[in-house]
C-alpha cells in the first residue's frame, strides 16, 4: 500500500479529516521551503503538496503566480525539488509528499527520469495540473512503474461520464476543485464545492480532498460535513507567511500555528456524531 493510501486508511479509522498544505518550492528560498515542510509536518499535516514553479501557471491565481515568479527569478531549478524532498526525508519528515506541477517541466526532463528522481528522493505522488485524463496514459504507466500515485483533479464542471473515467485511473486520493476558476483564497465554500463533494461521495470509494479557495477553519468544517476526507490549502499559507516577512522564524511560527488550527478542525469535524 502506498504511503498516501496508508495515511488515508489511518485517518478513516480514527475518523479524522486530512489537512493538506501546499507549498510553492523556492519561494523565499529553498531553505525556507524546507523549513516550511518540517513545520507543517510537525503541525500535523497529513500530506504535503510541493508545487513546482512554472513560468506559465495557467491554473493558478495571482498569489501562487507571484510566489512562482519570486522563486524562478531567485534562481530556482527543478533539480532543487529533488534535493528538497531528499533533505526532508533525511530530516525525518515522513509525511506523504505529492508534487503538484505543470506538465512541461516533466516532459522536458523526460517522464521516466522525472518520476525516477522523484521516487528516489522520497516523494509519494504526482499531481499534473494541466494533464487531463485524455493525455495522461504515458505518465500513468511510468509513474506506476516507479510506485508513484497519480493524483487526479475533478472540477464542478466534470460530468458524470468523465468523472467515472477519471476515477478509474485515480489513485491515492481525488482532488476536488471547489470552483470553476483558478487557485486563490476565498472566504466561504461555494455551493459548487458542496455539490461536487456529494457527487464524488456517491461515485467513489477514494478519499476526496477539497482545494482551491480554502483558508479558514469554518470552511474545513463545511467541507467535512459535505463529505470531504480532507482539505488542501495553498494561497492562504503564502499570504500568511508574507505577513511575517523580515522575521523568518516569526513567519514560520505564524504558518505552523495556523496549520495546527486547520488540522484541529479537520480532526474534530469528522468526529462529530452524524
Amino acid at each position: 500500500m502506498s504511503r498516501i493510501a496508508a495515511t488515508f486508511e489511518r485517518l478513516a479509522e480514527s475518523e479524522e479529516g486530512a489537512y493538506i498544505p501546499y507549498v510553492c518550492c523556492g519561494d523565499r528560498g529553498v531553505g525556507f521551503t524546507g523549513e516550511l515542510v518540517r513545520r507543517l509536518s510537525r503541525a500535523g499535516a497529513d500530506v504535503i503538496e510541493l508545487g513546482l514553479p512554472f513560468s506559465d501557471p495557467m491554473a493558478d491565481g495571482p498569489t501562487i503566480q507571484a510566489a512562482m515568479v519570486r522563486s524562478l527569478s531567485s534562481g530556482f531549478r527543478v533539480a532543487k525539488l529533488f534535493d528538497l524532498i531528499s533533505q526532508a526525508r533525511s530530516d525525518g519528515v515522513d509525511t506523504p509528499i505529492v508534487v503538484m506541477t505543470y506538465y512541461n517541466p516533466i516532459l522536458r526532463m523526460g517522464l521516466d527520469t522525472f518520476c525516477k528522481r522523484l521516487a528516489e528522493a522520497g516523494a509519494d505522488g504526482i499531481l499534473p495540473v494541466d494533464l487531463p485524463v485524455e493525455e495522461s496514459g504515458d505518465l500513468e504507466r511510468i509513474a506506476s512503474a516507479h510506485e508513484l500515485d497519480v493524483i487526479r483533479l475533478v472540477s464542478p464542471t466534470t460530468d458524470d461520464e468523465r468523472m467515472a473515467q477519471i476515477l478509474q485511473s485515480a489513485n491515492g486520493f481525488v482532488y476536488a476543485v471547489s470552483i470553476s476558476g483558478v487557485t486563490g483564497q476565498r472566504d466561504s465554500l461555494p455551493h459548487s464545492a458542496i455539490a461536487l463533494l456529494k457527487r464524488l461521495r456517491e461515485k467513489s470509494g477514494l478519499p476526496v480532498a477539497l482545494g482551491f479557495g480554502i483558508s479558514n477553519q469554518e470552511q474545513v468544517r463545511q467541507a467535512m460535513a459535505a463529505g470531504a476526507s480532507g482539505v488542501v490549502e495553498g494561497s492562504a499559507l503564502i499570504n500568511i507567511y508574507a505577513r511575517g516577512l523580515g522575521d523568518e522564524d516569526g513567519a514560520l511560527d505564524l504558518v505552523e500555528e495556523h496549520a495546527r488550527g486547520m488540522k484541529d478542525s479537520a480532526r474534530a469535524a469528522r468526529q462529530r456524531p452524524g
Binding site: Y103, P132, E135, V177, G181, V182
Partner: peptide, 12 residues
C-alpha cells in the same frame, strides 16, 4: 496539438 488543460477548462 492535443488538449493539455486544467480539468476546469475541459467541459467548456
Amino acid at each position: 496539438g492535443g488538449f493539455y488543460v486544467p480539468e476546469v477548462l475541459v467541459a467548456s
